[in-house]
């Protein structure tokens, strides 16, 4: 459970999961922010108004998944690094996971990486498809990784396999 060890439980995660149908329709945001904290940049970041207005700054973000097109702009705007985008329609076997990444070195396109779940356990591998690090992102890169669909809702971080990592 989040409050005991920082890892969200199944129940906690259902709160932030789009419907099965929506997940099958293409890229969509997953906002794993399940505590009332004084924070709201995600709301202002989305150009499509997919975040419902906050009743006050401590509200938890709530999303209109039909407005979200998975553009990933909000990922780098969340100081909690709690925003991800998943796409179950990426290919037959693979889904695409987009994560915020603030470590160095950055992975490279085409690189095979280890995927980690929410407890930091290695759960498989993935292939880096894109690394976005524009000035606007202010040093929070967005890494897109193709992973087997079975782990698309589990994988939330990556580890590079390079020498000395």
């Amino acid at each position: 459970m989040l409050k005991n060890n920082g890892v969200p439980s199944r129940e906690e995660l259902t709160e932030v999961k789009p419907s099965r149908e929506r997940l099958q329709q293409g890229p969509v945001v997953i906002v794993e922010c399940i505590q009332e904290i004084p924070c709201d940049p995600c709301y202002y970041a989305c150009p499509r108004g997919a975040f419902y207005p906050f009743s006050d700054i401590n509200s938890k973000p709530e999303i209109d998944y039909d407005k979200c097109n998975g553009c990933s702009i909000c990922i780098a705007n969340c100081p909690g690094l709690a925003v991800f985008v998943v796409d179950f329609t990426y290919s037959e076997e693979e889904g695409l996971l987009q994560i915020p990444y603030e470590l160095t070195p950055l992975p490279e396109k085409g690189e095979e990486v280890v995927t980690l779940n929410r407890s930091g356990e290695e759960i498989g591998t993935g292939r880096v498809v894109k690394v976005l690090n524009t000035k606007k992102q202010d040093r929070t890169a967005i890494v897109s990784v193709a992973v087997p669909k079975e782990i698309l809702m589990e994988a939330r971080h990556i580890k590079l396999r390079r020498e000395g990592q």
Binding site: L2, K3, N4, G6, E32, A82, S119, H157
Partner: peptide, 22 residues
């Protein structure tokens, strides 16, 4: 018995493999 800081901060280091022992 609980994480005192914001859970989003806890989650981001947990997925990097650091245990939090309350």
């Amino acid at each position: 018995p609980q994480v005192g800081g914001y859970w989003v901060h806890a989650s981001k280091i947990r997925r990097m493999g650091v245990p939090i022992k309350t």
